[in-house]
Amino acid sequence: MAKVKLSESKINKIKEICASFGNKPGEAINVLHKVQGEFGYLPAEVQEVIAQELNVSVAQIYGIVTFYSFFTMTPKGEFPISVCMGTACYVRGAEKVLDEFKRELKIGVGQTTPDGKFSLNCLRCVGACGLAPVVLIGEKVYGRLTPDGVKDILNEYRS
C-alpha cells in the first residue's frame, strides 16, 4: 500500500465533512461518499481520519469501503478508461474489448497502472447503444471498438 501524506488542509477538509454530518457513525456512508467526491479516492490515511472523527474503528470504515464497489482506494488514472457493459455493448463484444485493455495495461478492473496514467473501470449503459461497444477515455467517446483497435487508441495517450 502506498503511503499517502495528508496535508493539514486536507485533514481539515475531511473533518469539516464529518462535522457536516454531525460526526455520526450512522452517516459513515454519506461521509465516505462526499470525501471521495472531494479527493477522487479513499486512501488508508483518509479512512483513519474519518474513523477518528466518527468515533468508529478503522476496520469498520474499511469494511464499508470494501463492501460498496463504488468506493475505491486507488486514485483514478490520468486517463480513466470506462468500458460500457450495458446489454447492447455486451452483446457486441464489450467483454473481449475489456479483456484486451486488461492485457495491454496489465491491470484489472478497478485498478490503476503503476505510472498513474490509466485506470480501468466498467460502466452501465451510457446511452450510446448505436455505437456499441462503447469505451470512454476521460470525456472522449470511442464507438464500435474491436479488440484490435485497443492498442492504437492507447498509443494516442501513451507518448
Binding site: M1, A44, Q47, V56, S57, V58, A59, Q60, I61, Y62, G63, T66, F67
Partner: peptide, 21 residues
C-alpha cells in the same frame, strides 16, 4: 471497544479482517 476486526469485502471474498487487511 478495540475494533481490530470488521467484516470486509463482500460475496465470496467476504472475511473478517483488520483494517486494510
Amino acid at each position: 471497544t478495540v475494533g481490530a476486526l470488521s467484516a470486509v469485502n463482500r460475496g465470496f471474498q467476504a472475511v473478517v479482517a483488520p483494517a486494510f487487511e
